[in-house]
Write a protein that binds this DNA or RNA. Sequence first.
DNA 1: CGTAAATTTGAATGGATTCAAACGTGGTGG
DNA 2: CCACCACGTTTGAATCCATTCAAATTTACG
Lengths: 244, 244
Amino acid sequence: MNDINIDLKKPKCTDKTWEGHTDCVRCAIRNHVLFSGIPEEQLDHLVSPIKNITYPANSVIYRAEEKSNAIYTIRKGLIKLVQHLPNGSERTVRLVQNYDAMGLESVLKEPYHHTAITLQKTELCQIPLSVITALEKTQPQLGRQLMHQWQNHLDNADKFIIDFSTGPAETRVARLLLFLRKSSNSLCFNKIGREDIASILGITTETASRIMADLKRRSIINCIPGECCTCEPERLYAIANSMS
Amino acid sequence: MNDINIDLKKPKCTDKTWEGHTDCVRCAIRNHVLFSGIPEEQLDHLVSPIKNITYPANSVIYRAEEKSNAIYTIRKGLIKLVQHLPNGSERTVRLVQNYDAMGLESVLKEPYHHTAITLQKTELCQIPLSVITALEKTQPQLGRQLMHQWQNHLDNADKFIIDFSTGPAETRVARLLLFLRKSSNSLCFNKIGREDIASILGITTETASRIMADLKRRSIINCIPGECCTCEPERLYAIANSMS
DNA sequence: CGTAAATTTGAATGGATTCAAACGTGGTGG
DNA sequence: CCACCACGTTTGAATCCATTCAAATTTACG
């Protein structure tokens, strides 16, 4: 497994020569509109505290209750936000990926509300709160950007309830697999643990395993060990839309 | 049943002689900080489009997909936000009450994302978008207020997943009853339909009915027809926390 | 190669859904 | 005023589904 890799060189998102630069246009914070009015030399100085970090799977980015001091945007990969149940087990309440922002509560000076854990190798930008507050002064549109991010989280939460917490277990699994497919294009769901599936869908590990095994047997998904999976999307859609 | 009652007289929330005025201090929009810098005569003019409306139970406030033009704050009562499933039935994704704001997506010029329906007699303030945009210019803290509202919705969504979509049906019902108790103080849950309970908890109407009937038989809740209910909170808590 | 951890499978139990029927309640019209 | 109908709630019985607990199997990794 590759280790955590913090790239400290300089703020990549303003460096046009960086290969990943084109992605930054989609970034929640470093939006192409957002930096438009700021002179080049100020800009470098402002965003230099932004770090590009790559985490392996199963890394904790931050913990619930912890004092917050940065928001994050996900560049590549997948993260679960979990909350701890009184009983000791954990329930996943959101999946974050694909240029979503995360940890917005830090803008409101609140401690983090979830524990954030990577489900795959994940590349993200860590934006210290100081950058946000500094940018806010000169860039009034930033507030609007953040509101859109909040709304986006809400929409995700709604989809989470509708897709992952409604209907029989097989239906939920199918919807999760389709979600993962859309997000990563390559369907590496042999990488995601059964326990994670269970915590996302509110079912037990055994049920998750049984259903996954059954889908394999029916050749709806095909997993070569160590490789990514293939699936038959139409058949998954059929299951996903079957309201018992 | 009492009809919809729109109070057009004048913006009550700035009228200190109005009996409900003290509540307005807690309002998401008319916050005591918020209006501090604005001269009296401008204030009246600014907030005059705000309407106080009282709806009976089962009224539709707005519909999903509909063009949005106002946000709402709930003064008293209870509202469900529902989304329609492909199958035709509906799933409740949030419960709104107690000075919560609702319809924030209108600030982002998006159509409403849910259909909002009252579960009880509900009193609310309708704040046209024009008021928000006008206030935004002179009151920079308004943006922050709105962010807090978004965060509040997110927290509610999390609780919705953890409390109402996790664990066995009886546990979920107990948690819902305790939620209703805390919100309305008086526990009028003979008023809330079994179908509503089902759509909130993601179970069937029959299961909801069976569990409610059983709780009555065990005298954990006592309902006098036409009156409000009483319950034994400790026993409900015991059920609510029983993870099985 | 061997051990720990994760996954799969089995069998029994318990819980939730389905479909159908009975019951109660409130409202309408004869 | 009562009969009747519509609608929501309750109950029953059968079936199906998910969980539990235990064991077997596979996989990952030192």
